Amino acid sequence: MLGVVLAGGLASRLGGVDKASVGFGAGTLLDAVLARFAPQVEALVVNANGDASRFARYALPVVPDDIGGHPGPLAGILSAMDHGAKNGFSHVASVPVDTPFLPGNLVARLKDTAARGGAPIIFAASSAEDGRLLRQPVFGLWPVSLREDLRSSLSTGLSKIVLWADRHGSESVPFPSTDIDPFFNVNSAADLDEAQKLNDSAMY
Rank of each mutant, 00 (worst) to 15 (best):
V144N: 02
V107P: 06
E148D: 14
D98W: 07
T156M: 12
L133A: 10
G131I: 00
P174F: 01
G131N: 04
S177N: 12
L192W: 02
G131W: 03
N105V: 12
L150W: 06
P120D: 04
D181F: 03
V138T: 14
A125G: 09
S159G: 13
S188V: 04
F123M: 09
D130F: 08
R147V: 06
V173M: 08
V144G: 06
S188C: 08
G104M: 06
P120Y: 08
S155P: 07
P100W: 00
R132D: 12
L134H: 10
L133V: 05
W164F: 14
F175D: 00
G104V: 10
P174N: 13
P100T: 05
A124F: 11
P100F: 05
A114C: 11
V162L: 13
D166H: 13
D179M: 10
F123Q: 02
G140F: 10
V162Y: 12
E171F: 02
P103T: 03
R167Y: 11
E129M: 11
S159M: 13
A165R: 01
G157M: 05
L150R: 06
E129V: 11
R135V: 14
L106H: 00
W142Q: 07
D166C: 09
G117W: 05
L150Y: 00
S127W: 13
L154T: 03
F139T: 03
G117D: 06
L158H: 13
P137C: 04
N105S: 15
L150Q: 07
E148F: 09
A115G: 14
N105K: 09
W142N: 04
L192M: 00
S126L: 00
L192K: 00
S152I: 10
I161A: 02
L163E: 14
D112I: 07
L158C: 14
A115N: 13
E194Y: 09
G118H: 04
Q136Y: 07
S126F: 03
R135E: 15
H168Y: 14
L106A: 11
L163R: 14
A190K: 10
G140V: 11
P174V: 09
V186Q: 06
P174W: 01
D98M: 05
I121L: 11
A190P: 06
S177W: 11
E129W: 12
E194M: 10
F175V: 07
S152C: 08
N105I: 11
V162C: 13
S127F: 13
V138F: 01
V107W: 00
R151I: 02
P120R: 01
V107C: 08
L192H: 10
S152Q: 14
